[in-house]
Design a protein around this nucleic acid. Structure first.
Lengths: 178, 178
DNA sequence: CCGGAGAATGTACGCACGTACACATCCCCG
DNA sequence: CGGGGATGTGTACGTGCGTACATTCTCCGG
């Protein structure tokens, strides 16, 4: 039962922390919730992470990396002659639906980054990747506009009850892209 | 010294709570911080508010009302033939500069609203007022696009160090509005 | 003018938290 | 193969929190 030797203990704790903040939010992460989730004793989390902030940083960094990776994959999977408005509207629907939990956490991080510099890298890397992706298709100013608009639309989709309508989103995006 | 009778005690506590969350964030609001800020004993906050959530709700409601009022005032002060891109860029600079504290709180509320339904009304009312203002100038879909973009741009301005450049913002906004 | 209802106060309780630390265990290398 | 450093564990301490509540005070209506 007791896993006395566990070479991946540290990584497992980070993974547990990611699960906790994904499901229950940043405020829910404590040494105890992470330890319970990872099925390790309390002392283990304080041994591997000198402070709770250090654990939070590791978890947030992991989440940010995965978000950016997902975005990159999506961009690479786009058809060559794709209509950006259609594709982006579909991506928003996907992120607000199937990947809702991750997206909610992303915008919770957004809000938190305004007061906690440690979280800033996560939101910045997301914005930079968005702009980078868009700049391969449109000019720099439009890419910046699109990044801002994408974030605004995705947030609205997340905060509103019910599924967003892809057709509506597409129409709105066309105001900028057509 | 002891103010045994105070007809506006409840309102003063709400005001203190607004100050606390404006300066130090949502997480900083406790019965004790609010009481200290209002210069009343701890028992006073628990007497006037059955729970901390009730106090938080009152404070958030107050903040949301003021934000919406400021937005309405700004809209009414616009010159008749104003260029919307220029004016909006200036408004973003103003909100990210002089009114930074309030704006930071607004987007902290945005993030929090995703997990705490009690905060949702605050972010929703802001979005609705924005869209309402824009619809007096542009069509509905553009207004929605502009609301999303405005929020995205203002957030970026808040999270980035240094003052945003009004000319840059204006150029980005023109991608949608021209 | 006085009594009671509402307002105000101070204290206390129980809980969850971050962190520290003494002790147990394990692996690896000399 | 044995010892030492890294790893793992359980417990305890101090703090700040939300909340409850008995007590004191203040005002005002009859």
């Amino acid at each position: 039962m007791t896993r006395r030797h566990d070479p991946h203990r540290r990584q497992r704790i980070i993974e547990a922390a990611v699960e906790v903040i994904s499901e229950s939010g940043l405020a829910a992460l404590t040494h105890r919730t992470a330890a319970a989730r990872a099925d390790v004793p309390l002392g283990s989390t304080t041994y591997h992470f000198l402070s709770l902030d250090e654990l939070l940083d590791a978890a947030v960094h992991t989440v940010a990396e995965r978000n950016v990776a997902r975005l990159r994959e999506w961009a690479l999977s786009l058809p060559a002659q794709a209509d950006l408005s259609t594709e982006l509207a579909g991506f928003i629907v996907l992120l607000a639906g199937e990947h809702r939990q991750t997206s909610v956490l992303a915008y919770e991080l957004y809000g938190g980054a305004l007061r906690r510099p440690a979280l800033r890298a996560a939101s910045t890397s997301w914005d930079e990747m968005l702009t980078e992706v868009f700049e391969s298709t449109v000019d720099a100013a439009t890419a910046r506009a699109l990044t801002a608009m994408f974030n605004g639309l995705l947030y609205q989709a997340l905060v509103s009850p019910g599924k967003p309508e892809q057709a509506d989103l597409e129409q709105v995006l066309r105001r900028l892209l057509d």
